[in-house]
Write a protein that binds this DNA or RNA. Structure first.
Lengths: 134, 134
DNA sequence: TATAGAACCTGTAGTGGCTACAGATTCAAG
DNA sequence: CTTGAATCTGTAGCCACTACAGGTTCTATA
């Protein structure tokens, strides 16, 4: 089976932009594909699977360095333990981000609620911004 | 009352790094301060207040463009209505981010839970990453 | 077969919001 | 007077792309 997909076809299949694929190739996340005589990239099914994996990892918020590890590009395929560790570290940081955003959301919502909504520059939101830590 | 604070003193008072202050000056968020004969920046209380306002706005997640508006650097001091609009738009995007992160957190937690935790490369997390949308 | 326009190519610069560094000068304490 | 901290300017780097310029090639239609 030969590689027959153009970069555009791969992009569509994996749900990733063409420029992103070339970027991934440059930084070593995607392998260099074969080329036609005139220099166009040709991809196969393996590339689709790999790119989907990368996309999904990114959607779940893993940084590209983590994706590199998950792909086994650092020290070979990671063990389940290693993957679990990576996922848990990431999960912890996601939970932290959620908490931070929730605190922020409350402060913001309170401030907006207190707004007089007039044409004056006197504004509860501005007051909140002018204060020290909530 | 003369401006007597060094950039380091201002940084400490406002809880912002020295480099960040110079950056804010460069992009027009902070006004150019006075200088000593030898060229060192000198700040006053007004600068402290302003910088604290900026810092607080950033802590609440407003992008610097919004901070610019809040400071009245675009079209003069914004009305309470305008501020409220800005805050509500920002609040909406924060809530969206929270929802996205929560969905992500669930997926990630489920995957990590399903992990066999062995030394094998067979891993539930990897399986999840290899799949299409959750 | 001629041609138009879509898709592809490479390389570079820009995004946001800082942070870090290099290499020079100036300040403050002992 | 000396040492070390603080400050100065300017530039490059971070992440993960995205956009653009200026060119070549492919493909579909007439």
């Amino acid at each position: 089976m030969v590689d027959h997909l153009s970069i555009g076809a791969l992009a569509e299949r994996a749900g990733v932009k063409v420029e992103t694929i070339r970027y991934y190739e440059k930084i070593g996340i995607m392998p260099e594909p074969g080329r036609t005589a005139s220099g166009h990239r040709r991809y196969g099914i393996g590339h689709v699977t790999r790119l989907q994996f990368v996309r999904r990892s990114r959607e779940l918020g893993f940084p590209l360095e983590d994706v590199r590890s998950l792909l086994g590009l650092e020290d070979g395929p990671p063990s389940c333990n290693e993957v679990h560790d990576l996922a848990m570290r990431h999960l912890t940081s996601v939970r932290k981000r959620i908490e931070d955003l929730q605190a922020l959301e409350r402060t913001l919502a309170n401030a907006a609620d207190a707004c007089a909504l007039g044409d004056t520059p006197d504004c509860a939101v501005i007051d909140v911004l002018g204060r020290q830590a909530p």
